[in-house]
Nucleic acid binder design. Structure first.
Length: 419
DNA sequence: TCTGGGGTCCTAGGACCC
DNA sequence: TCTGGGGTCCTAGGACCC
């Protein structure tokens, strides 16, 4: 028995917590660089603002004050997420934090309770303690819980909680769910299924297993089984170690010089190193990619190149060194670059690094240097100590022109109450 | 003027092994 | 005309997720 807890319009709802006058107002939250819309409040959806639309296309609505727009405030969203997760943990010891705004709870052993009421209690508690509206879906498999949650969120009758476990409405709910709205069925499979007359979750549940296996592989078979009430997807309570780390960002201003690209790539490599060390991992391989802006009518170029490291490392100067070797291989003069990124690969835990007999680096010293660096930056703020090659002015830096205060993670940005 | 970022899993095919 | 059988590992690309 599973419950899926999903925060409603998560980013938009986060903005409301410390800004109550936004209640019932249309809000959008913008992507990095304030580029496009990544979250919308119900009121913004009602205005017909589509998901993912470029921000400049709704600029008139923002400037006229009809729609409130915010830059992404990941410090705030991450912290609110943590609080939501902490709160719902009280309702079951077995939790899988699935994404920043979603979690599965295992409710096996709770069947003696009225689970709908239990869901309502979760909803009320999270709203009261954290200020976040959530929807709760309950079902005998994760896939059914997802379907329940989706209906719970939309239906006024359900009022945020729907329990489909052993429910006489299960078939009805499946018939109501379009095949593209099933967890694991994306645009491509949805198109294929519809072309073959499989329109709803109920149709897919009744489809022939062999046919599904042939066209959607083992992943498809699992979805069908889950719809039939056979649990194939288990609760992943402890996250498995990361397999790769990516840091990539489009620039606030196009970059047309090698120096500028060096700064950006070195900056992203620095950030990737921080992520790596937080997870106590080392990277065995690294890839750099660069690209121009495909939306612009000007010469286009994009390329990438990878490098295997002699010994897996989490040392920022070493990562920067290899990153810049890669950049040198793919940089071309005469283009205006729009985006660059680094991907760290072949990650291994620190305890399992394969060393090299002929290695000349003093890796003990590297490690001490990195922990000193991380400690200084933790104490005096991110970026207190940086590498010169990452630049000073950084004109290409990502834009966040409408960021709300980081109320819960920065002393200087605490919310103020005016009396 | 202006169009996001970061992941996972599966599969087919190639290279290689005995 | 005719050319075995059974495996593993790796990678790129596709599909999906939030």
């Amino acid at each position: 028995m599973y419950a899926l807890i999903d925060c409603n319009n998560f980013y938009a709802s986060c903005e409301r917590i410390f800004n109550p006058h936004l209640e019932r107002k249309p809000i959008v939250v913008l992507s990095n660089n304030d580029g496009c819309v990544v979250a919308r409040s119900n009121e913004a959806k009602a205005l017909g603002i589509p998901a993912g639309i470029a921000a400049f296309k709704i600029r008139h609505l923002i400037e006229s004050g009809e729609v409130y727009a915010y830059s992404s405030n990941y410090s705030l969203y991450g912290d609110i997420s943590r609080r939501v997760m902490e709160t719902i943990t009280r309702f079951s010891p077995e939790i899988e934090v699935y994404s920043i705004d979603e979690a599965f709870l295992k409710l096996s052993g709770f069947e003696h309770l009225d689970l709908t009421e239990y869901g309502r209690a979760m909803r009320a508690t999270v709203k009261k303690w954290v200020g976040m509206p959530i929807s709760v879906g309950i079902g005998e498999t994760k896939t059914i819980a997802k379907i329940a949650q989706r209906i719970a969120k939309k239906s006024t009758k359900a009022n945020g909680v729907l329990n489909l476990a052993g429910s006489p409405y299960l078939e009805y709910a499946l018939a109501l769910t379009g095949v593209g709205d099933i967890w694991g069925v994306g645009r491509s499979y949805a198109g294929f299924l519809k072309k073959n007359g499989v329109e709803t979750a109920l149709d897919l549940r009744n489809a022939e297993t062999g046919w599904v296996k042939k066209h959607m592989g083992i992943v498809g078979v699992r979805i069908v089984e889950e719809l039939r009430g056979v649990s194939c997807l288990t609760l992943e309570t402890c996250p498995s170690p990361k397999k790769g780390i990516t840091v990539s960002r489009s620039f606030g201003k196009l970059v047309d010089s090698f120096d500028g690209m060096q700064e950006a790539v070195a900056t992203y490599a620095t950030r990737a190193g921080e992520k790596l060390r937080r997870e106590r991992l080392a990277a065995g391989a690294l890839m750099i990619f660069v690209m121009t802006n495909r939306f612009r009518d000007e010469p286009q170029y994009s390329n990438s190149t990878a490098l295997e490291l002699p010994v897996p490392t989490a040392c920022t100067p070493e990562l920067i060194q290899y990153a810049l070797i890669c950049l040198d291989r793919i940089y071309r003069k005469g283009y205006r670059f729009y985006k660059a990124g680094i991907i760290l690969d072949s990650l291994v835990p620190w305890g399992r690094i394969q060393t090299d007999l002929f290695d000349t680096r003093n890796r003990d010293r590297d490690k001490r240097l990195m922990s000193a660096l991380d400690e200084v930056n933790a104490r005096h703020g991110a970026g207190a100590l940086t590498f010169a090659v990452t630049g000073i002015q950084r004109p290409w830096k990502t834009k966040f022109n409408h960021r709300s205060p980081r109320c819960t993670t920065r002393w200087e940005e605490l919310a103020e109450v005016k009396v």
